[in-house]
Computed example of a mutant assay.
Amino acid sequence: MSEMTAAEAAEVLEVSQRQVARLASKEVLTVSRVVGRTLLLDSASVHRLAQRARRNGRPWSAATAWAALALLSGKQADWMDAARLSRLRHRLRGINASDLVWLSRRRATIHQMRGWDAVTGLVPTGVSALRDPENAALFGLSATDRGSDGYVAASAFPELVTGSGLYDDIEGDVVVRVVPDDAGYRLEQSLVAAVAVDLAEALDTREAAAGERILTELLTEFRAGDGHRNRTRR
């Protein structure tokens, strides 16, 4: 049996190592063995998933991914021209929640980290967004103190790392999602669609199910032409 590490699988699948671990825990990917803290996967299962996923289309650029998440959250995507927005609206009407998660995976580069100080300067998402009572109620989940999860612009990332003493650690409880500076989205507030996508990729099955449920609702509302109802949370 040919093997590859979680890092290698993440590169093939164009997802984070955390998402690879989630796929392995759900038996979507086959674990061949664990050596110390290193997860080794059956290479064939990784390549089969990569081929199947590619049938859903090439992943969007960061700018397109953020435009899609903004539209689903009832916001404008003024960094996109009219023609591209029209094509994107048409695409959104024909995909499901799983497709959206796959297509928007280039919205940010994910860093699993640990630090010696409280992390500030992140736009909250995932479990961090659930500390807002309205978000917790929307997703039907309880708030948790488990780590930090949020977005930061690429230009602000070095200062964040220095200020909070962050360093890469696959077991760390800080998830930093670095958004390219040319992505268009200005990171002024959390978008409910982005929170939902991030929860849909979570290792926790309840969080993943809640994220997929909200994405399905947002896509249904969008197809119904009811985008003004889509919610954006600070």
Rank of each mutant, 00 (worst) to 15 (best):
R105S: 09
Q17E: 15
V46W: 11
R89V: 00
V178Y: 14
T109F: 12
Q17Y: 08
D182Q: 11
E207W: 09
L138V: 02
N135T: 11
L191V: 08
G36A: 13
A224Y: 13
Q19H: 15
L41M: 08
G172D: 08
A143H: 04
D149L: 04
D204C: 06
A70I: 03
E134D: 10
E134L: 07
I95R: 01
P180C: 07
D168A: 05
V20A: 08
Q76I: 08
V161R: 09
I110C: 00
V176Q: 00
P180N: 08
E171G: 02
E159L: 04
T109C: 00
A67Y: 10
V195S: 05
A108E: 15
R131Q: 13
T205A: 15
R37L: 04
Q51W: 11
L219M: 12
V101E: 11
A202M: 06
L141Y: 06
P158S: 01
I170A: 15
E217W: 14
S164D: 05
E171L: 01
R87M: 11
T162Q: 09
G163A: 07
L166G: 05
A97Y: 10
P59L: 09
W116R: 03
E171F: 15
R37Y: 15
M80S: 04
L92F: 10
M80I: 15
V34L: 08
